[in-house]
């Protein structure tokens, strides 16, 4: 059984939400971290519902709604979301209030909204979707947990699963992560990417051939891991038409170097973190840009870091790691 991405939408620090303007004009910012370019939500979310929503919920609901509309699915068979830090802005807000009020009189809204599954729950409430509703919060594999679940649901018999990977950045989180030395050279970022995962191939659908996640693997082991992943999916290394990597700004990163060296020097290499920056669920965007590349047969020059072979795209390999701990390998095909 095959699993397909039949619709996909992303809000990121670059132009990705509006399909017409997808990665056309490059945005630069002076902020010490990357903030998503948010659409005017009034046209996408009922203001009555939006009034309690923090940015992460708005970004997620907007991309989720767009995916549902694009795939023309009113009620998915499940809603599955991955998020590294969840509704961190509301968490901060409630915590700050506890501290300022010394556990005195507290308003409950931020607490309610801070729960990690607020996003998936809110989508269920809006769609009146009573089917399975899961939220995964597993560091650099938060989105991967959700994707693996969505794929398993297709094997279990589901037709359509609404899948998302989402995180928001705040100045406070940025401050703390900077003090912790997270992110290395890569700017921290944020974004929401939603997908319709389906069991049938429709026009423009992209197949997820496989997903492999592994923790604590050495640079020596990574190439063997990728090779065996490709073997399992009956794909030869020279059949891979492009690489989508989460390099960020650390070009010296040995993992990515090893992967690139497995392929011919002219293979197009895309660095998707140029768009998103680094965060727990940044890898979700690799699946969005991969789908766009295959559907549009286009290698986005702004994020192409090497390779010039553009003789048609059928198979693209995704590889990302978070802090050298959580590694992700996947393959998309047309």
């Amino acid at each position: 059984m095959k699993v397909y991405i039949t619709a996909s939408s992303a809000i990121t620090p670059q132009n990705t939400f509006d399909s017409e303007k997808y990665l056309d004009v490059w945005q630069s910012s002076d902020l010490p971290y990357q903030l998503a370019i948010e659409p005017d939500y009034k046209s996408v979310i009922d203001p009555k519902l939006a009034r309690r929503m923090s940015r992460i919920i708005k970004m997620s609901v907007a991309t989720g709604n767009k995916v549902l509309a694009e795939a023309d699915i009113g009620q998915p068979d499940a809603i599955v979301v991955g998020t590294g830090l969840g509704c961190i802005k509301d968490t901060e807000k409630f915590l700050r209030e506890i501290i300022n009020e010394e556990e005195g009189l507290l308003s409950p809204t931020a607490f309610i909204q801070s729960t990690h599954n607020t996003i998936a729950g809110q989508l269920a409430l809006m769609l009146q979707c009573s089917e399975d509703n899961f939220t995964y919060v597993n560091r650099g594999h938060s989105f991967e947990n959700a994707l693996a679940d969505a794929m398993m649901r297709i094997y279990e018999g589901a037709d359509h699963v609404l899948l998302g990977g989402t995180d928001e950045m705040t100045s406070e989180v940025h401050n703390i992560l900077t003090h912790m030395n997270c992110g290395g050279n890569t700017l921290l970022g944020e974004g929401a990417c939603f997908f319709m995962i389906s069991n049938t191939k429709i026009d423009g659908a992209v197949c997820i051939e496989g997903l492999d996640t592994v923790n604590y693997i050495t640079t020596q082991q990574i190439t063997e891991r990728v090779k065996s992943f490709l073997r399992r999916n009956n794909v030869d290394t020279n059949e891979v038409d492009a690489l989508i990597l989460g390099i960020g700004e650390g070009l010296g990163d040995p993992y990515y170097k090893e992967i690139i060296q497995m392929f011919t020097p002219d293979i197009p290499v895309i660095n998707f973190k140029e768009v998103t920056g680094e965060y727990f669920t940044a890898s979700a965007y690799a699946f969005n840009v991969g789908s766009e590349m295959l559907r549009k047969q286009c290698i986005f020059p702004k994020i192409l870091i090497s390779g010039n072979n553009t003789s048609g795209l059928t198979k693209v390999l995704i590889y990302n790691h978070y802090q050298g701990v959580n590694h992700t390998i996947s393959l998309l095909s047309l």
């Binding site: 969840g86 729960t115 990690h116 599954n117 998936a120 509703n133 899961f134 939220t135 995964y136 919060v137 597993n138 560091r139 594999h141 938060s142 947990n145 693996a148 996640t213 923790n215």
Partner: peptide
């Protein structure tokens, strides 16, 4: 443990 790791947060 070296198998699959999942973390679920549904309140």
């Amino acid at each position: 443990l070296k198998g699959i790791l999942q973390t679920i947060s549904t309140a």
